[in-house]
Design a protein around this nucleic acid. Structure first.
Length: 213
DNA sequence: CCTATGATGATCT
DNA sequence: GATCATCATAGGT
């Protein structure tokens, strides 16, 4: 239990808003992962907004598929995808049902249960690196596709939930282009982070991979 | 600090 | 067959 933290899950209407409003408003909130060994609590420090079918950077840009179907469902659920053959990334669906928008949870500061994450994050040189990057965050929290579609606001004991935290003052929230997003989606400054926080991941521009000959 | 590159497989065209 | 909302590692500065 963290002093001063409200343990109430965020209401569904928190997520039932335009993704560009929800994304920065998630910074400073507490993401809770219930594991058999105990809870892991993470303060969100970096997120990216993906605006569904109007956003070339979104998995939903070309319409509904088997992979992205959760994005088209009701807000307040987890969209988990597998990428680069090795990693998982965790998003929260927001906006009205049918709009297919979501927020990628990119980084955070683990405040409770760091010891439960270290065996999965051996390469982390310090605790600030445990969840510094979206795949690192998912690995630290033991999130994989088994959690795709999970309701994150059901109750605090749910496998995954988002609780009220203390958002930073608005002048400490920065925004810029999304990491690793190319093409027409690269220009949208829809990455949001807490200025100066040591758990925020470094920005990387999209790099097209040279094809094998 | 930095940049380059291989790993690895689901997904979509 | 190409791409991919990435990471760990190696090696240069």
């Amino acid at each position: 239990m963290i002093e001063g933290l409200d343990r109430t899950p965020l209401a569904r209407d928190f997520f039932d808003r335009p993704v560009l409003e929800v994304a920065p408003d998630l910074l400073g909130r507490t993401l809770v992962r219930a594991t058999p060994e105990g809870p892991i609590e993470l303060r969100l420090t970096e997120v990216e907004a993906y605006a569904g079918e109007i956003d070339p950077g979104s998995h939903a840009f070309r319409g509904r598929t088997a992979r992205n179907s959760v994005m088209f469902g009701p807000p307040g659920h987890a969209y988990v995808y597998f990428t680069y053959g090795m990693w998982h990334c965790l998003n929260l669906v927001c906006g009205p049902e049918g709009r297919a928008s979501g927020v990628l949870l990119r980084a955070g500061d683990i405040q409770v249960g760091a010891e439960l994450t270290r065996h999965r994050r051996n390469s982390a040189r310090n605790d600030k690196e445990l969840a510094k990057g979206p795949a690192r965050l998912a690995t630290a929290l033991d999130v994989d596709r088994a959690l795709n579609g999970t309701d994150v606001i059901a109750h605090p004991g749910a496998p995954l939930s988002v609780l009220h935290g203390t958002p930073p003052p608005r002048d400490q929230v920065r925004n810029g282009p999304r990491t690793g997003v190319g093409g027409d989606g690269a220009t949208h400054p829809w990455r949001f982070w807490i200025d100066g926080d040591p758990t925020v991941s470094p920005y990387r521009a999209h790099v097209p991979r040279r094809r094998a000959i």
